[in-house]
Simulated scan of single mutants.
Amino acid sequence: MVSAVVETPAISVRGVEKSFKNVHVLRGVDLDVAAGSILALLGSNGAGKTTLVRILSTLLKADSGAATVNQFDVATQGSNVRESISLTGQFAAVDEVLSGRENLVLIAKLRRLKNPGAIADELLAQFDLADAGKRTSSTYSGGMRRRLDIAMSLIGNPPIIFLDEPTTGLDPQSRMEVWQTVKQLAKGGTTVLLTTQYLDEAEYLADRIAILHEGTIIQNGTLAELRQLLPEATMEYVQKQPSLEDVFLALVGDEPRKES
């Protein structure tokens, strides 16, 4: 009899808690992210999504609990974690004085990689920015700037990338461009933890969706599994599947948001 091989999660979180003074933001978070998958961490503003990402990327220390990223402990092996990840925040960290190519070359040089020009050219092609590579990034659209930002974060081929609300403030076309980029990353084997408050974004991108509410993960599953939490609604001969928005609102309610 051949026993099943259990793969180690790329990201594992157990009982993580974090408070800021008297505000208890994370209240015991448990979460696993499979290697090469996209997990969307869904929650309202102030739910603690960014706080969790900052802990996993070693920018913030948890008060209690444990977490590993690429099998490295975030509390005791911070340098190994940082070598394994890339973090893209809510706003593109692009130098608008430089061209797209110059931004990429700069990051490759800072990481002391060989052939920074070749690395830049390869990423410009990969992210459909080759024609705009010599233009200053200040002339880029929001979607182009965000794609450049993600390309910069991938220099060095990190196996895990954190995207913290990557489409905030983008128009619909730019959002779709970023979505295609994220899909491309996962197809290439990169593990993606994506935080978002946009339900359609999670619905389109994620292999699994975790809902963070009042400091804990209240549900975690595929879109199909989450839909099963609500009964199917029928009307005459038309059957309606519950949307992710239906599931989310049923789970967290529509009470006023708590600031944290």
Results as ranks from 00 to 15, higher is better:
residue 145 R to C: 01
residue 239 Q to G: 12
residue 173 Q to D: 04
residue 234 T to I: 07
residue 205 L to I: 10
residue 138 S to C: 05
residue 180 Q to D: 15
residue 227 R to D: 13
residue 216 T to K: 13
residue 177 E to V: 00
residue 231 P to S: 12
residue 194 L to T: 14
residue 199 L to P: 04
residue 170 L to Y: 06
residue 151 A to I: 04
residue 199 L to G: 00
residue 198 Y to R: 00
residue 209 I to A: 13
residue 144 M to P: 03
residue 144 M to D: 02
residue 231 P to H: 07
residue 195 T to K: 03
residue 143 G to A: 07
residue 133 G to T: 14
residue 166 P to R: 04
residue 151 A to G: 10
residue 228 Q to F: 00
residue 228 Q to C: 02
residue 164 D to G: 05
residue 196 T to R: 00
residue 123 L to T: 00
residue 178 V to D: 08
residue 154 L to R: 12
residue 134 K to T: 12
residue 235 M to P: 00
residue 193 L to S: 11
residue 231 P to G: 08
residue 142 G to M: 14
residue 176 M to I: 06
residue 186 A to R: 14
residue 237 Y to Q: 11
residue 159 P to F: 07
residue 220 N to W: 07
residue 232 E to K: 14
residue 124 L to Y: 11
residue 190 T to S: 04
residue 200 D to R: 00
residue 197 Q to G: 05
residue 152 M to N: 04
residue 154 L to Q: 04
residue 239 Q to F: 02
residue 180 Q to E: 14
residue 224 A to K: 15
residue 200 D to H: 04
residue 126 Q to E: 15
residue 135 R to N: 14
residue 202 A to G: 06
residue 199 L to Y: 02
residue 158 P to Q: 08
residue 201 E to A: 05
residue 166 P to W: 08
residue 191 T to F: 09
residue 131 D to I: 09
residue 155 I to Q: 12
residue 125 A to I: 14
residue 228 Q to E: 15
residue 212 L to I: 03
residue 131 D to A: 15
residue 194 L to W: 07
residue 171 D to P: 01
residue 201 E to C: 03
residue 172 P to D: 11
residue 128 D to N: 12
residue 180 Q to Y: 09
residue 149 D to C: 03
residue 182 V to Q: 11
residue 213 H to L: 03
residue 139 T to N: 14
residue 136 T to R: 15
residue 224 A to T: 15
residue 203 E to Y: 00
residue 151 A to M: 02
residue 215 G to T: 13
residue 132 A to L: 07
residue 141 S to H: 03
residue 173 Q to Y: 09
residue 234 T to S: 01
residue 141 S to V: 01
residue 150 I to K: 04
residue 190 T to P: 01
residue 160 I to V: 15
residue 213 H to T: 03
residue 234 T to Q: 05
residue 177 E to N: 05
residue 186 A to I: 04
residue 235 M to K: 02
residue 235 M to C: 06
residue 231 P to Y: 00
residue 164 D to T: 07
residue 156 G to H: 06
residue 192 V to R: 11
residue 154 L to I: 01
residue 244 L to Y: 09
residue 187 K to E: 15
residue 205 L to C: 09
residue 143 G to L: 07
residue 123 L to D: 03
residue 194 L to G: 11
residue 176 M to F: 10
residue 211 I to K: 08
residue 225 E to G: 10
residue 177 E to A: 12
residue 230 L to G: 04
residue 233 A to Y: 02
residue 169 G to E: 10
residue 144 M to L: 06
residue 209 I to L: 08
residue 187 K to C: 06
residue 239 Q to A: 08
residue 150 I to G: 00
residue 162 F to K: 00
residue 155 I to C: 09
residue 124 L to S: 10
residue 146 R to V: 01
residue 229 L to Y: 03
residue 129 L to H: 06
residue 141 S to W: 06
residue 242 P to N: 11
residue 211 I to G: 10
residue 204 Y to M: 05
residue 148 L to V: 01
residue 177 E to H: 01
residue 141 S to N: 03
residue 124 L to D: 13
residue 162 F to P: 02
residue 157 N to M: 05
residue 233 A to T: 15
residue 158 P to S: 05
residue 188 G to A: 12
residue 132 A to H: 13
residue 136 T to I: 03
residue 126 Q to W: 13
residue 229 L to H: 01
residue 122 E to Q: 13
residue 228 Q to G: 07
residue 171 D to E: 07
residue 221 G to I: 11
